[in-house]
Design a protein around this nucleic acid. Structure first.
Lengths: 142, 142
DNA sequence: AAAGATTGACTAATCAATCTTG
DNA sequence: CAAGATTGATTAGTCAATCTTT
């Protein structure tokens, strides 16, 4: 459980550190930057479902997140051309700018905080492996 | 930023996996188990401030968390004997039981999900080092 | 004034119920 | 009936204002 505690704490503190700098630089916070990055990767064809999966939030939360992105003029839904249950979410010009500017700053902070340490590469690779394990459904069910 | 994304996602998914099993076993969730562990370590003399620091939440959130622990009969405040601004928070019998039972299950899930992998030890040690860096105030301020 | 804590207004997550389309 | 998404009720976090004690 020590591992768990260390993991949670570091993740939270790093998140807050990055968020602080972004907000102080009048950029979108990290909680907005992450979804903008997801939508950017999907290049105009991201769905609510994609936000849900890639951010590890529920589908309900993803739906409301999309609402907020639209409300703030960062993204826009258009009907999915082949499936009327769904929408495609694209970044607006404002959203694209916010993504690229925010990412630039976030990268800088990350480099600053993490250093050019080997640890980062090592931890990153190890986390990928652990994530695979986790995803492969080895999780106990009770 | 890939490192960051991997870190956040793994932490979230692991958190949810552990939480799921705890809830399904009729135990307190991980969001309650963690504060119980903090209070347990402080052995009857934990303060709101300790919850705040060790869980990386604000002082306001920690105060409300203490309210909930009391409301649910898991902990109890008593006046700090030497400082009338503060209280000491101790686990009740119920809280102690919940802590030890929950921890037992959480350990099992953790072992299950993480395996006996070297990765865990490696990541743990590396995260400790990164956490030190983060804490030592190397964070950019703007 | 600084430190410890509490409280109220606000934000964003969860779950469950529901609606529509496939 | 499945899949995709939305919405309402609830929960727990943030920040800012405030109060008491040091």
């Amino acid at each position: 459980m020590n591992f768990f505690e260390t993991l949670v704490r570091f993740q939270t503190d790093l998140w807050n550190a990055v968020d602080r700098v972004l907000i102080d630089s009048d950029q979108v916070g990290i909680a907005i930057l992450q979804p903008l990055r997801v939508l950017n990767r999907h290049n105009g064809t991201g769905r609510v479902h994609d936000l849900s999966v890639e951010l590890s939030i529920t589908i309900g939360a993803a739906s409301k997140l999309a609402d907020r992105l639209e409300r703030d003029g960062l993204a826009a839904r258009r009907p999915h051309p082949e499936d009327r249950r769904s929408s495609l979410i694209a970044l607006t010009e404002l959203g694209k700018q916010a993504r690229s500017q925010g990412e630039k700053i976030a990268r800088r902070v990350m480099a600053d905080v993490l250093g050019d340490d080997d640890d980062v590469a090592v931890v990153g690779a190890a986390l990928e492996r652990l994530q695979s394990r986790l995803q492969s459904g080895l999780v106990v069910t009770a």
